[in-house]
Amino acid sequence: MLRDAITSVSKLHGYLISRTDARVKDYPLMQSPVQMTSILAAYVLFSVYAGPRMMANRKPFALNRAMIVYNLCMVLLNAFIVYEFLMSGWATTFTWRCDLIDPSTSPEALRMVRVAWLFYFSKFIELLDTVFFVLRKKQSQITFLHVFHHSFMPWSWWWGITLTPAGGMGSFHALVNASVHVIMYTYYGLSAAGPRFQKYLWWKKHMTAIQLTQFVLISIHISQYYFMEHCSYQMPMWIHLIWMYGFFFFLLFSNFWVQAYIKGNRLPTVDHSPKQNGSTSEHITVMANGKHHENGNAHHYTNGKIVMGKVKEI
């Protein structure tokens, strides 16, 4: 039985390699699903087990400068990805309706292949969001939604660009996601820059609204497929998966919206703790790199455990 299982896995691996688009075979992390799956498995293990245990008896690292540089780089990277998606089809030849996969080696198709891979690779860079949380001992910010989103996105995108790197209408959600990340990492960079920038972060609540709008746009765009009289998109399975992805994450982020802004479970609270000079402090602490941490709601986990059961943050 074990030999049969190994043979089946080997045949599946060979099939996947044979189906990999020749235009993307030589890009890093595209030779086999084993590489990227191993990285993501190590990421999950580090996030929920090894990292918290490593930091349990250590002081949190002060990484504000590193986070400012990181967030700025992510803003620039995602802005470049947006530009490349637009120039490789979405602002040039695409109709924004039934846009097919381009299997050619035209300059525009190859440009779409490159930016699709770059978007995929950027998801591995984004794993540093979680690394910053672990090293700063902000375990309460590493929720199920956070870990699932950061691990599922690059894993699912490997399969997408293996078969459809110039994905036509199937690449719209990547364009929207990169656009949203330009806004998000701008916000996180300002958050990491210190208290003097707090007055520029009044739009915190709108971050979740932007996320929700993203999934609505993705779902509406991809839903066109079901109402067209004829659309010969080459990989209809991706249409169904993208629609389910948009709907699923809309529900998850809607839950956060309800918890934070309707039920008030994560709204800022005022800290009235006395200072050394006898005065009281009234301030809100805003976390960088994906999460907002309010004074009075802090939970610092030093026993290596992690909150995974409840969606708290975006």
Rank of each mutant, 00 (worst) to 15 (best):
L63D: 02
T37S: 07
M87T: 12
P60M: 15
T7G: 12
P33H: 01
P60T: 08
G51Y: 06
G89I: 09
Y43N: 11
P33K: 02
Y49P: 03
A42E: 08
C98E: 14
P60K: 10
V48I: 15
N71S: 09
G89D: 04
I81V: 15
S32W: 00
A50L: 14
K11C: 01
Y43C: 01
S88T: 09
L100S: 14
R65G: 09
V24K: 00
A66G: 04
L76R: 03
T92G: 02
N78W: 03
F80I: 08
S10E: 12
A22E: 11
Y27G: 03
G89K: 08
C73R: 03
L16H: 07
H13E: 13
Y49D: 15
G89R: 06
V75D: 05
I39T: 05
T92D: 00
N64W: 10
T37N: 07
V44W: 05
P33G: 00
G89Y: 05
N57H: 12
F46P: 07
K11A: 13
R58E: 11
P28N: 04
R19A: 04
L76C: 07
I17V: 06
Q35H: 06
V44E: 09
D26M: 04
L76A: 10
G89T: 03
V34W: 03
D99I: 13
L40P: 03
I6M: 02
M74H: 13
S10P: 07
Y70L: 07
P60H: 15
R23A: 10
A91H: 03
Y15R: 01
N71P: 14
V82A: 02
K59P: 01
N78K: 09
V75T: 01
K25L: 07
L86Q: 07
L45P: 10
Y43L: 14
A56N: 13
G51R: 09
T92Q: 05
D21M: 00
V69Q: 02
M67G: 09
L45W: 15
V48E: 01
S38N: 14
E84K: 12
F80L: 15
Y43Q: 11
N71K: 14
M87I: 03
M67E: 11
A50V: 15
S18Q: 04
I17Y: 00
A50H: 09
S8A: 12
I101S: 04
E84I: 02
D26Y: 08
C73Q: 04
W90A: 03
A79F: 15
P60E: 11
R65E: 15
R58W: 04
R19I: 05
A56Y: 15
N64Q: 15
M74P: 08
L77G: 01
L45E: 08
A42N: 00
M74L: 14
V9E: 08
L40K: 06
T37A: 13
I17R: 00
A66Y: 02
I39V: 05
V48F: 11
A41V: 12
A22Y: 03
V69F: 12
A79R: 13
L12V: 13
Y83S: 11
H13C: 06
V82L: 02
Q35P: 01
G89H: 10
W90D: 03
N57I: 13
L72I: 13
G51E: 11
L77M: 15
G14R: 06
A79K: 10
L16I: 08
M30D: 02
T95V: 07
R65Y: 09
V82D: 06
Y49G: 09
